[in-house]
Design a protein around this nucleic acid. Sequence first.
DNA 1: CGCGATAATGACAGCGCAATCATTTTGTGC
DNA 2: GCACAAAATGATTGCGCTGTCATTATCGCG
Lengths: 339, 339
Amino acid sequence: MARKSRAGSNRPTLADVASAAGVSAITVSRTIRSPGIVSEKARRKVQEAIARLGYTPDPAASALASRSSSTIGLLVPSLTNNVFSDVLRGVYDGAQGTRFFVQIGNYRYSALEEEGLIRTFLSQRPAGLIVSSMDQTPEGRRLLQAAPCPIVQIMETGDAIDMSVGFDQLAAVRAGARHLRDRGYRRPGFISARMDPRAQRRLGAFRDVTAACGQLDEARILTTPQPSSVGIGGHLLEQLLARAPDTDAVMCNNDDLAVGALMEAARRHIKVPDQLAICSYNDIEMARHMVPALSAVATPRREIGSRAIAMLLDEIGAPGSVTERHVDLGFEMIAREST
Amino acid sequence: MARKSRAGSNRPTLADVASAAGVSAITVSRTIRSPGIVSEKARRKVQEAIARLGYTPDPAASALASRSSSTIGLLVPSLTNNVFSDVLRGVYDGAQGTRFFVQIGNYRYSALEEEGLIRTFLSQRPAGLIVSSMDQTPEGRRLLQAAPCPIVQIMETGDAIDMSVGFDQLAAVRAGARHLRDRGYRRPGFISARMDPRAQRRLGAFRDVTAACGQLDEARILTTPQPSSVGIGGHLLEQLLARAPDTDAVMCNNDDLAVGALMEAARRHIKVPDQLAICSYNDIEMARHMVPALSAVATPRREIGSRAIAMLLDEIGAPGSVTERHVDLGFEMIAREST
DNA sequence: CGCGATAATGACAGCGCAATCATTTTGTGC
DNA sequence: GCACAAAATGATTGCGCTGTCATTATCGCG
């Protein structure tokens, strides 16, 4: 339990390894970064010396000398939202075992904070960047365009700066809305929290579909700027039913909301799906285990993360080598018991 | 959509700012890092030059020269587990606006992977480290002890290396078990996934309490090495009831499991809490919104994160200044409808 | 006004590695 | 066995910043 002493460490350096192995420093550097161009004999000597001295490279020195760090920046709008924790897992699993570190920046759904983070990340000369939207500020977009590293924009399809991995969010919402219509529901509502630009666009897609079949009723659309949560889902359904008691289906912009709505329905002894259908969005693990099991538009969050990091690593390894630069991973409308 | 050009950037350096401001480089460095010791006049000149040139410091060069980076390492066993996403939020919110970056390492409940990450993180000369347990390998522990930076171990109380923030996990489980007993349940079970050392110890605490009042029955204890999830919670309850159908209460080692158990009970038309009580552990937001609302041992995850980063930043700023080096944040048994 | 004390500033070197280009060694074909 | 190409290795330099210590400006006080 003693306080730590802050003794100066005497870590071995490249030069130490070099003299121990009887080669020059640069040969050591090369055996580490590109073993292929070093002779079998030298490589063995160096590796032996590295192991014996317990050498680990100093990433700061490497970054300074090469003008590029081994950091990969990942910008997300939220750490709470389950959607991004799945993406995160995909990214981390893909970065596992490489020489790259992932550094997360949370811009809390603020484009201004995002711009600041872009600036901060770029000052680190990252090896690559993954950003969670196409909705940067003009300045943020300019910074990304000028960045000397590959960039993957995730979650959506659309006008990407460099590369992108996502799916058509609007088509996904439309699929949910059509599913409700096809199941015979005629008075569908929509609830959403945290109206960031993407949520706004999804609501637009819902309006389009319901308007097209004459079912659009603004009284059934309820949103709040608060962050999404199970509790908020319950509240939103409560308010929706107060305003439009004959609503017979509700499209939820998020799994949290759907679970909250489902619980609120249970509390009010509203039968799901007979009296009220609930359709969820994203389909986190929990959704399928609810009673009744939640129908949902399933989105490939984990795959987005792992594909994004894979593309980035490829492109970092060999710039220009990634030919499929814009990937649409699709989505799936999964009907379960709640509709 | 065009591919990015990889043009060499011509970022301004400290020296550029210095000559633009008519001072020496070191003065610029000081106005950035400790403005207090620079004269008003010089500071204004420098700040003006920084703004005019759009200068941003190069963290790699800084790290190399000062032998300490502005990275704070955060080691967690899982990115999936909601518990850690709350901790993460606390940490990120606390690091917001400082000059430090948080870098997450996920060791996937493997002490060996953790040891590797400790090594990797230390090679970056981090400003500080937050680690999620006291269960390092001997070598991992040695590395931490020798590390030239402050370290906070989180989640538990106990034999910490440098500083710690947590609560008494065993007392927390005992509180849950006693709560069930006090409510009159006599045949309590226990379900747990992912039996890491901490989960093992918590199970031990449950055994202690139930044995003390003659209610211990190993047939009612069910564990699995699989990761925790809502689905697993349902399965575990199913198996538990198959083995010991008269079980009248179940302590769940995690909110996921509790929700899964609750849903499984609903599926089987088992009345909660009349036929079966369910007590959860951690109390994520969702728990209180279930129907029936889940009783839970609430743990201060977010506070652990924010307190840990605060202690770390204090100690980095002024080594030795943190006097309360071992903080117990406590827990709370919250009785709701499910018991 | 002058002395010592303190605050403010600067010169210089070096942190550990990789880019560049020069040099040496090895391999190839006839 | 030789000329040549290709592979392997090395010497030097500098990335951008901060630590150290020396130097200069500023202040308080008798």
